[in-house]
Design a protein around this nucleic acid. Structure first.
Lengths: 131, 131, 131, 131
DNA sequence: GTGGTCTAGACCACA
DNA sequence: GTGGTCTAGACCACC
């Protein structure tokens, strides 16, 4: 597995690096970009390509294993777990977006914005990121 | 000022309590629900009604003071600062929603959702929270 | 919480230290020696009293939290989680012993020992450890 | 020697595969199921029937050789060593079970189980595995 | 005071 | 080659 482009991290974010990795891998598995049995980059490779300490990568991988997303193969690279083999349906993937949008809706309400205003901003941002 | 209903905190969230307080107060000031000169609950009252350590409230208030949102009056309750008296324009308030929606857009892209799917979910959530 | 006598570790064992901690805490919670809301020793205190690196303790505590045995209280000591408040019944606790005895039974069979021989040895060992 | 049924491995266990092999062979020799001069499966055959890396088998065999349990014959299969020809006495074999039961006794004590409870469970499990 | 994150680097176990 | 464990120690965030 190519360790470049596997995930992106933002070292400036307050979100810990290991958690950024966990969330991105989970989304990519849900989206079907990573399939059951796919090898993921080794701890050392990914650590080097992200310029991060190997233990940070290892921590993320361990968490993903404990959540059943990855499987450990002794002495070998880790792979995407079988029970996550099927990419989730669009309906399921949409649900994974709910928490963040729920937060956005709460903020919009506190800002006393209309639904139209909030939706228009979201549409604008979506167009910016993938015009 | 009634210390109940002033703000809501979610102790389960990973968002620090003091930051939840700061953000909510700023949004309510921006929305014009809190106006210049309005008294806010005392540290002690709010700490009690939220079941939170007073120092946590104090830290939030101090941050809000250093940002010019609140003003300290010796021996009296803090009040919303004068320079924040006017509610911000709708255009300004919309901008405050941008960071969260930007995050949502990034997640939607990693989940390989279409713009339509993402927008529909947001619309649904907005309808749920204020039908 | 007294950090001495909280748990014992065997640095010579091949069992990792953090896992020894996890298993012992889980057994003590099951046995009712640790009850819901009980504070556990701080990471630093326990690390010092066991002469172990704090991160090793922290790793064990994090695992116990992710399994729902402990609860994190921001800025404060961790406590035994509420959903583990009730000591488990004797029947439940007995079940926790099953895996190890299952392993022992498999070994006894491969050694072609009779049930009597295996049971007598277990009885002897139990008498030794708590005469 | 039939490479099926020679040993069983549990890839899910935390016990390393090579050690599972070593312990099982030692127990079967002690029990007299494998006698001096008996041929054991070749590294290649056993690796294939267990779906394990040949080097793992080789490591186990080498360990057994260094402990004097197996003997290497140039160009031929390895055999059970002569000095291990006699099955060990029942008293000796019972001792090989001690470490696991010692561990079980320690767990029983931490679970605050009575000797009776622990013994009853062991008896039940022994009955299940060989009624 | 509390726990969390990260780095640097050693050493081990496994295949 | 793979991942795992542990130490030493810095720095941060929270209460």
């Amino acid at each position: 597995m190519d360790s470049d482009h596997f995930v992106h991290i933002n070292t400036g974010s307050s979100e810990p690096i290991y958690r950024q990795l966990v969330e991105q891998v989970k989304r990519r598995v849900a989206a079907g970009q990573l399939r059951a049995g796919d090898e993921i980059p080794s701890v050392r490779d990914l650590a080097q390509s992200l310029a991060v300490h190997p233990m940070t990568i290892s921590k993320a991988y361990s968490l993903l294993e404990s959540e059943g997303v990855l499987e450990r193969r002794r002495g070998l690279s880790m792979v995407v777990a079988a029970q996550h083999q099927r990419a989730q349906s669009a309906a399921d993937r949409v649900e994974l977006l709910r928490p963040t949008l729920h937060q956005a809706a709460a903020e919009a309400r506190q800002l006393q914005l209309t639904k139209i205003q909030a939706l228009n901003l979201f549409k604008t941002i979506l167009d910016e990121s993938a015009p």
